[in-house]
Amino acid sequence: MTTFTTAQVPDMTGRTVVVTGANSGIGRIAAQVLAARGAHVVLAVRDLAKGAAAAATMTGDVEVRRLDLADLASVRAFAQDCTGPIDLLINNAGLMIPPLGRTADGFELQFGTNHLGHFALTNLLLPQVRGRVVTVASGAHRGGKIDFADPNWERRPYRAFPAYAQSKLANLLFTAELQRRLTEVGSPVRATAAHPGLASTNLLGHLDQQRSLWNRLQMTLVHRFAQSEADGALPTLYAAVADVPGGSYAGPGGFLEGRGAPKLVGRSKAARDEAVARRLWTVSEELTGVTFPLAAQPAR
């Protein structure tokens, strides 16, 4: 079996790629690789100055557009400005274990950004997508549970990691239900997911700010054993361009999926629950006001 590296990313000339959160971390690396392979890459970022700085480090056809996934008005405006075909949408942007916060629409910040923002963006862009939708999840999904009674942490004390785990579980349930719907209507578009393993990115910033000796020791160990951003981006690229079926989930192939060459990996029982995936989709439609836009293809 050939180990997947960036050398396996094919020529992307003539293809358009949208990468959310592409100004830093694995999103920046993925965008950089795809642009170098000839794609027209749209860096969909909240901070245009940071996006421009990232674009300046890349070779190829790169464009920066503003997208704030924590504001559905911004998501709609971004989608409205995307008028041409999209060959690859990479839902990469995300938050990890911040203090309690709310999106512009009142959602808990991690659930609202990591899941609902990408849910709305994907469905708004889906009529233009002609290749693949890749959503970046996390091994933390294994500790997640969708609390349908209180998905936005309005009735119970906020706990940052369970909220993060819920949002990452939602990413995988979203991917599974999206693929089911795409298959149902006869669409050739594929939905896949990936996780970077333990990668040293700016997502760890909130943890670095912890002051307790135990937390600082944990972060020292994390940074010591974490793989680089470049290696962390490989599962995303694998899910984006490798010959894998819809619904696939890619991650590092090493110990506990923390690092190593990408391969298809498993997911928790909760992430395979079709009934919960359908219910989450319905709830997400109700919260965002965005619905699945594709109709069944006529029989040939």
Rank of each mutant, 00 (worst) to 15 (best):
G51T: 04
N91R: 06
N123M: 07
H115C: 07
P85K: 02
R155E: 13
V62F: 00
L124A: 07
R156V: 15
P98Q: 04
I97L: 08
G106N: 02
Q166G: 13
D68R: 01
A165L: 07
A79D: 10
R46S: 09
S167W: 01
R142Q: 14
G117P: 09
L124N: 01
L69W: 05
L72I: 06
R132S: 10
N123S: 05
F78G: 14
A149T: 11
A137D: 05
A53L: 07
D150I: 08
R142F: 09
Q166A: 15
W153M: 14
A73S: 12
L43P: 02
G101D: 14
D147K: 09
G144A: 11
P157K: 10
A53E: 14
G101I: 04
T59G: 15
G94T: 06
N114P: 06
V45A: 05
Y158E: 10
A49E: 15
P98I: 01
K145N: 15
L72E: 08
V62T: 07
G51E: 03
Q166S: 15
H115N: 08
L109P: 01
V62Y: 00
A104P: 01
A170P: 12
A55W: 01
K168M: 12
A137T: 06
I97P: 01
Q128V: 02
P99E: 12
N171I: 00
P157S: 14
L67K: 06
L67E: 11
T135K: 02
A140M: 14
M96V: 07
W153R: 13
E154R: 08
R156Y: 09
L72W: 03
N92D: 13
E154Y: 01
D71N: 12
L43M: 09
F148I: 06
D87W: 00
F119L: 10
A79N: 10
H118R: 05
T83K: 10
I86R: 00
R102C: 08
G131R: 00
S74Q: 08
D71C: 07
F119C: 11
G60D: 06
V45D: 05
F111K: 03
L121I: 04
L116C: 10
A55V: 02
L69Q: 11
N171V: 01
N152V: 07
K168T: 13
G143W: 00
V62P: 04
L125A: 11
L88W: 06
F111W: 11
P162C: 08
D147V: 11
G144L: 10
L89K: 02
Q166M: 14
L95Y: 05
L169P: 10
A77T: 12
A44V: 09
A49F: 05
H115W: 02
I146M: 15
S167F: 02
A104R: 03
L109N: 04
Q128D: 08
V75W: 05
K168S: 14
R130Q: 15
R156E: 15
V129P: 07
D147R: 12
G143I: 02
P85I: 01
L169N: 06
T122C: 09
R66A: 15
A53Q: 11
Y164G: 14
R66P: 09
N171R: 00
A54Y: 00
R156N: 15
E63G: 06
R76L: 10
V75Q: 11
W153T: 12
A79C: 08
P98L: 02
A137G: 11
R159Y: 06
L48A: 13
Y164F: 14
A70Y: 03
L89S: 09
G51F: 02
T135R: 07
A53K: 06
R155S: 14
R46C: 11
D147P: 12
F107T: 05
